[in-house]
Design a protein around this nucleic acid. Structure first.
Lengths: 151, 151
DNA sequence: CATCTCGTTCAGTATTGACTAAACGTTCTA
DNA sequence: TAGAACGTTTAGTCAATACTGAACGAGATG
């Protein structure tokens, strides 16, 4: 199963995730889980990714806390096994919506700061507020539509 | 004009942008331009942000290349002045759409990698592909709707 | 020509932070 | 009870990188 194509995929995922501000190892781990045919133990991930167990442990847990992966148990085995969580992608998009709301909140603060008189700054901040309110609301609707179709 | 509220706003913007994976100084510079009543020269930004001119120079240029700011000239003055670019927020969102398309492309590669037989990996990658195709398309539509209303 | 004024570039510095190896605590097992 | 199997934690290392100060180059100006 560790064929060259999946390794290539894992590597590309590492780079893609890295570009999003997370670490390459984290991205590789996520990519590995994406192409895994069954839940993987920490040691299996260590073998596949060639990183220390400590790193795999923390990255896997971060992955879990972000809602991208979850732990599953295997009968008669006390190892931890990880797999991609259901709705992983919706959850990252939902987090993005959170960031959008934060930007809207920031714009509102900015408007307080610049005062009520008309000004270029006020216009810019108003546009920022409108934009992020619009986008936040609309993308939330998109997520609901997606869940209706898939969930 | 350097009132405490705007300074607070600039600082919050620095933190918000930092959380998005860019640097705090970059975010502060962007925040400063957001609340500026007129285009600012490099030296003015140096005064307001208390960072070296070298840093302001590179950050301002990066800001320009990202489509967040633009240079404007002032008659009889050979300094560079910067201001927030029109459509700055749309442009960051458009870049996000680019990242979404990249994820869709990655999913397609993953499907190639895992082969045609049914499998959990294949199901996950298919969902990933569908999700990002959907989101990419829909958010592009949102951007167009926004431009219709505002532009 | 000499001298400013700007913006950029470059080498050096300092900080951040991801990763590793080893120690540790806990839980099973012989 | 000793020891093995796991996951986590921690101290330490190393690389990446944002920022600074100084040098530089291009234009303007006297």
């Amino acid at each position: 199963m560790p064929n060259p194509e999946t390794r290539e995929f894992i590597e590309r995922m590492g780079l893609a995730i890295e570009r999003l501000g997370l670490t390459r190892t984290f991205g590789r781990l996520f990519g590995l889980l994406m192409v895994a045919e069954r839940p993987l133990s920490l040691d299996e991930m260590v073998d596949r990714l060639h990183v220390s167990k400590a790193s795999v442990s923390t990255n896997a847990r971060d992955c879990e806390e972000l809602g991208l992966a979850r732990r599953v148990g295997v009968r008669g085995d006390r190892k931890d096994y990880y797999e991609i969580a259901p709705g992983a992608f919706e959850s990252v998009m939902a987090k993005r919506v959170g960031a959008i709301h934060a930007m809207a909140g920031l714009a509102a603060e900015g408007l307080q700061a610049v005062g009520d008189d008309p000004s270029p700054a006020r216009d810019r901040l108003t546009e920022m507020l409108d934009f992020y309110l619009f986008m936040g609301e609309q993308i939330e609707e998109l997520l609901e539509r997606w869940r209706e179709v898939k969930g």
